[in-house]
Design a protein around this nucleic acid. Structure first.
Lengths: 220, 220
DNA sequence: AATGAAACTGGACCACGGTCCGGTTAGGGT
DNA sequence: ACCCTAACCGGACCGTGGTCCAGTTTCATT
């Protein structure tokens, strides 16, 4: 909420750059002083240990700071807020996923027809959420930023692109929003854990949804 | 987190009763002592005033309690938590909406073909979110309970029913989840406020989505 | 090596959501 | 009219996310 804070990178400014990172995997930290980098590594390690021991709910900012023998302010300086820390924890898996989409083997990566890539995308995302579900849930942003973080923007761009190949005349941004909504971690948690649906049903539902959305109207 | 709490209704237990409220609008408070009812009314009035004055973000539990000349514990006893208070604030509009769906004029109410009712439903929901957006955003539950509150369950049942009339052989629960995801207040906020999409585009997108989802495959 | 400033550190501090429990009150039974 | 008990009240208390700033450290430059 403060105005000018030159020496405070805030770890994720809401700059909405016009899709020039379309092919770059994501932005990197500009640089880091030696001690800062060391503390960052210790914090991530401590946070991962806390997740393993007490679940994602046990990742308290104070606890992480204490476990890393570091002041609380340092955690906030490095990661901005709790969500930033949790997202940093998911960053490795996220980067791997992005890499598979951009340059992995088909049908997830390039080389397959777009609809088939979409189907593979959903299955991969569902499987990824099967592990990491509690972490992804805990990292869920506040309602205002649930859609405007870097990983989400990347997935949105990817799905939009695939949709545009299959449906050149549709509003692919909105359709991408719909498809990604189906893969929302909170939704997956609700359907599988609270409603008891098996993952197979979610996968079948995804294929069905993709088929319905990309079906071109009555090609008689 | 406590175990047994007889004298503490908690305002919304997570009981997931098997759809026997399908036609009842919602459950009512069991009864209320005279002073409790008076305090409840004063709290709601105070909360509404705070929303009008300082926006939904200004609705602090302490502020509401103070504005109603009531102890903080009373607010939590009555409404369970902050989300409960905000949902109570939205309750009137919610009930009206549910009434329109159940027994209002077509095409929103009964009497129109299901696909047309679905289209009307989306437009109505979008318009309802246009007002009240900040309140609906602030009332958004924690990720775990975003889908398991009474209003949401009602809408889910309604949409599922309409879908089943149009698509007897599809997985209508999952499709209903998809459609409701499109109408999520956070999504609407993101698309209209942050992406700057006009509401007309969202409405067109809804019609398109309903058409795609309910299109029966190649009726040649 | 000395130096100066940018960048980082840590812990005191604050606000808010949520819990607890001793004291109070409503209102039905007698 | 009285009493008894369940329900309710209020505010002290706690944990957590997040801010702030005085002091310290790094490192590029000389």
């Amino acid at each position: 909420m403060s105005a000018s804070l030159p020496p405070f990178p805030k770890a994720e400014q809401p700059v909405d750059q016009p899709e020039l990172l379309q092919l770059g995997v994501a932005e990197e930290e500009p640089c880091l002083r030696a001690d800062a980098a060391r503390n960052r590594a210790r914090l991530l390690e401590a946070a991962a240990r806390l997740v393993a021991e007490h679940g994602a709910a046990g990742v308290t900012m104070e606890a992480v700071a204490a476990a890393a023998s570091v002041g609380k302010g340092t955690v906030f300086r490095r990661f901005g807020d709790r969500t930033g820390l949790l997202m940093a924890l998911l960053d490795h898996s996220e980067k791997k996923f992005q890499g598979a989409l951009l340059s992995g083997p088909a049908p997830l990566g390039p080389g397959a027809p777009p609809v088939e890539r979409l189907r593979a995308f959903g299955r991969a995302a569902l499987r990824r959420s099967a592990d990491e579900l509690d972490l992804q849930l805990a990292a869920e942003n506040s309602p205002e930023r649930r859609f405007s973080n870097a990983p989400r923007r990347f997935l949105r761009g990817h799905v939009t692109l695939l949709l545009r190949q299959a449906l050149p005349d549709a509003d692919c941004e909105l359709l991408a929003q719909v498809l990604l909504g189906y893969l929302d971690p909170a939704a997956i948690h609700y359907l599988t854990r609270q409603c008891g649906m098996p993952v197979e049903r979610l996968e079948a539902g995804w294929d069905d949804l993709v088929a319905r959305v990309t079906r071109t109207e009555s090609p008689c």
